[in-house]
Amino acid sequence: MTMIFGVPLQALMGQLLVGLINGSFYALLSLGLAIIFGLLRVINFAHGAQYMLGAFAALLLLTVGGVNYWFALILAPLIVGLFAAVIERTMLSRLYKLDPLYGLLFTFGLALAIEGTFRYFYGASGKPYAPPPQLTGAVNLGFMFLPVYRGWVVIASLAVCIASWVLIEKTKLGAYLRAATENPVLVQAFGVNVPLLLTLTYALGAGLAAFAGVLAAPVYQVSPLMGSNLIIIVFAVVVVGGMGSILGAIVTGYLLGVVEGLTKVFYPEASNIVIFVIMAIVLILRPAGLFGKEA
């Protein structure tokens, strides 16, 4: 068996893959957080709950409506996005003029309420969600077996990350978004409907979280608490990356996922704190974050 640094190659590659998959979710979620924060100045604590909602939407669409994975991948983000838009319109939008901390507290309460409700109706245990038949099985890469679905997760999340980046950096809508981030009053004076833009942004961010949730459903089990522990790690990712840049959020997400995977190989005891340790180190050396701009 091939050994690298005293570790079997297969174990190393296996954990690298796990890291890459976790990184995909970190990237998707921190991307959504960064988009929402950029325009709304709200840290969306409910992001984990919206991720969970996406997974549950897929599960319920399948069990109740008989809707398959591929349609769920489109429908679930739309449903969650719509739900988020309603929340933003009716409640969250009242908080923009206040200290940003109130937005954090409000979405924290929202997350608790959503997770509590699902826990009440569906229990705390996880429910399995089978991957679609097209993506079952594994391919032999020579040095390891790659489960097809896991490969798909990495590719799909990369594609969505790049698409979001293009949407924000290269399209007209994205230009409005970026302009509104810089100076909302001026953009509104130019005739752009900024409140609508804010609603769309929140819905987009939540939709991204739901998309990640559907992707995650066959990998992890669908459970009401699947988002709450993840969101704290994603916060750390966001602090490391700095929320100034979309690309930064994506790169940091994948990077930290891989680092976490490697830690599992070389020093398993530290694997669930390594991201927090990196966060602390980054804060000491470069408080603005790796890609952050402000001092």
């Binding site: 309460g109 608790l112 309420a113 997770e115």
Partner: peptide
């Protein structure tokens, strides 16, 4: 009945 639902709602009402 889970406390978290009430806790969450109270949070939202307080902030709003």
């Amino acid at each position: 009945f889970p406390v978290t639902i009430i806790t969450g709602l109270v949070f939202m009402v307080c902030v709003l």
